[in-house]
Amino acid sequence: MAGYLSKLEALLKTRQFVVCAELEPPQSANAEAIYRKMKYYRGVVDAINVTDSASAVVRMSSLAVSTMLVREGLEPVLQMTCRDRNRIALQGDILGAAGLGVRNVLCLTGDHQTLGDHPSAKGVFDLDACNFLRMVRRMRDDKRFFSGGEIKTEPRLFIGAGANPFAEPFEWRVRHLAKKIDAGAEFVQTQCIFDLERFDKYMEQIRAEGIHERVFIIAGISPAKSARPLEYMKEHVSGLMIPDALIARMKQAHDPQAEGIAVALEIIAHVRQTPGIRGVHLMPLKWASVIPTIVKEAGLLPRPVVDVTAHPVANA
């Protein structure tokens, strides 16, 4: 697709059903670990989300890991949060990311520092996700810094936001997403879906307001190895809805891993039937090796090939 820099953007705009997956950077300086993991993603997913110290636990920088992926010919979605950086650092990193060949950015507010491994840290939260989105969109489309100063070469990034259908206030979640779209979001990746009833209600409201026609919505799927990570998430990770029936089903399963894959495939089948959903985003819980199995079993292989405009620096 000539004209597009981002493969994800090209696929979505040519009405393909996309597959993304999350890659969690290591809690060490060991880059080998990342290169080893790449085989689970290559040729299997269209884009790889690189988390930015998710749950406020220190990990290798998302920009560094995204750059490694670019150099290996993979397509990263750089996740950036407002927790650790003010507007100056965020803009600097946005420029750096675009310069290094990153083509997609996911703008998030970020998990609060007290929930991670450094609870005594100072949280920044200079901007919130809405204003962060607006800032990046303005940098790209208007070639302006936050301050209004001119940018000679703009960062050409495909801009995404997060959405959580499973947190209160439910009635307002759709309006809140609309606010993010007005601010500049072009694609949206949702929180992990376990509760299909609540998800269907959310999507009904999305369609009623015509929001699915203004943004590409990618559904979040979390395959679990056993009941334990689900129980842990229910207890410790906020803003999730995990039905007790699902945990019970995983507990009773003869082969919990096979059951985890079956559950993920059921949810994928469901969201593919849901009008307004344009792709899936896999967030395996410490189980990256399951990605190829799930994508294959879901009948989403082979992935479509797209030609995008090459990046001069990344190819140098």
């Binding site: 939260f125 919130d128 606010k179 906020s238 803003g239």
Partner: peptide, 13 residues
């Protein structure tokens, strides 16, 4: 805690 002026984060449970 995040001084959000544009609506809730994804956290409330």
């Amino acid at each position: 805690p995040k001084q959000m002026r544009n609506g809730p984060c994804g956290g409330p449970t």
